[in-house]
Design a protein around this nucleic acid. Structure first.
Lengths: 97, 97
DNA sequence: TTATATATATCGGATGACCGATATAATTAG
DNA sequence: CTAATTATATCGGTCATCCGATATATATAA
């Protein structure tokens, strides 16, 4: 909450699933894409635990490539995203032009 | 985070501003509308402090009517919502069909 | 080889969303 | 009138998002 806008926190796991559904990504790429959309870079302390949670929930697969770890959606991750998208669109119906 | 979907928490203040921008509402009405959209009722402990924060930020005006308090957007609340909507649409670009 | 840059990961702390329970206030029902 | 219902509000606690700082691991540069 600041002077010109309300707090826009939340939905991080959902956003990560959505981004990774578009193409496989490693952590830094996810961070960069979120930076682009939010205008602000998420800190490592935010991003990596969130990725870890999604992995532990079985929604993300990881593939180590050198020092980077590339994430893709698991089948249940795809299902979760489908459900989440439906929920999201219902909650925020009318916001998008 | 549950088994079939990621955590969808967040954006509560934004959602309240958006709902109130459509028509003046009292607390219970806001709760009912959120119930409709989320399929789950927000608890009083969630809703009223969030409304209070928005009021204190100057985004909501209140008008007591019997025991109900009807909320409307202040001019700066309208501005805040405009900014927030732009941010929201950018962050979640591509999610809505 | 060592030094630097870059990607990943964790830590302790803060804040908002969230809960269920409880309390208060006003209106309606009996 | 009293009792029940309904709307608002707070409380103590949990959890995810969020931060900046720090640590670890890997690749690249010198």
């Amino acid at each position: 909450m600041d002077e010109e806008c309300c707090d826009m926190r939340g939905m991080l796991g959902f956003l990560i699933l959505f981004l990774v559904s578009k193409k496989p990504m490693h952590g830094k790429e996810i961070a960069d894409e979120i930076t682009k959309r939010k205008g602000e870079k998420p800190s490592p302390g935010t991003l990596y635990p969130a990725i870890k949670n999604l992995r532990e929930a079985g929604f993300l697969d990881e593939q180590k490539e050198g020092k980077a770890i590339t994430y893709t959606l698991t089948p249940s991750g795809k299902k979760a995203l489908t459900v989440a998208k439906r929920k999201f669109c219902k909650i925020f119906l009318g916001v998008f032009p």
